[in-house]
């Protein structure tokens, strides 16, 4: 794999559902080792962009390159994706989920996952159905972050959880991602994530409005990135 290539490159990326465009002409690059906030109000196209990058959707036009690869089995092997939904079957035990990830992902670090689960107090013999919604989300996060991937896609990882759980989730992300990898966190809870971000992308109506380092907010005279977000997206 060519280390000089950006981890993610979107070129003129457009996705339409029927006649309605969800993303329009998105162009962006994410270099290695960056944590990027994909920020925007509901319906701005954040999840669509995540799905396109993870290979769950095909673009209407434009291109996506992940470490130089178009989305497919090879790119999926280096992308670790955490969707908004709980994707582990209710009957699946935590140990079976570990086996599943170890089976399919060569970069899965089982020891790291077990360590995180132990600290979380989750037993591997428990089925997913026995866990609370918050714990299920944490287990999924553990599985995703225990991979040594090149790109982590985290779709609303802190949406719908209490503030204490948000801290746990962000700590897990920061302390586990590989330093050569990049992380894209999609959220509208800007204040909670801005201290961990290097860069941000503002999405509105499927269009990239701004793509800059987090320091841009202070340089432009805003109190914080959250302040900038609130002013730009005021209804």
């Amino acid at each position: 794999m060519d280390e000089s290539l950006p981890v993610l490159e979107c070129i003129g990326l457009t996705k339409s559902y029927g006649a309605a465009p969800a993303l329009r002409d998105v162009c962006m690059q994410v270099p290695r080792g960056r944590i990027v906030g994909l920020l925007g109000p509901n319906g701005s196209g954040k999840t669509t962009l995540m799905k396109l990058i993870s290979g769950l959707l095909q673009p209407t036009c434009g291109q996506i390159r992940i470490c130089g690869l178009t989305p497919g089995p090879q790119s999926k092997a280096i992308v670790s994706y955490l969707p908004e939904r709980t994707y582990l079957a209710p009957s699946m035990k935590v140990a079976a989920a570990l086996d599943y990830f170890a089976d399919f992902y060569a970069d899965f670090d089982r020891a790291a996952a077990l360590d995180m689960l132990t600290r979380l107090g989750v037993g591997t013999a428990q089925p997913m159905s026995a866990l609370s919604k918050g714990t299920k989300e944490k287990v999924q996060l553990v599985l995703v972050m225990a991979r040594r991937a090149s790109l982590y896609l985290l779709d609303e990882p802190i949406g719908g959880v209490d503030p204490a759980a948000r801290d746990y989730i962000l700590d897990t992300i920061i302390s586990n991602y590989h330093r050569d990898a990049s992380v894209i966190i999609s959220t509208h809870l800007v204040a909670d994530v801005e201290h961990v971000l290097d860069d941000f992308v503002f999405l509105r109506g499927g269009i990239v409005e701004r793509c800059a380092p987090v320091s841009f907010a202070a340089e432009a005279g805003y109190a914080s990135l959250d302040d900038l977000f609130r002013k730009e997206f005021r209804c």
Partner: peptide, 13 residues
């Protein structure tokens, strides 16, 4: 269903 988020992002064709 939601399980598809896992199955369809596996490194397989």
């Amino acid at each position: 269903s939601d399980e598809g988020y896992l199955t369809l992002t596996l490194p397989v064709t």
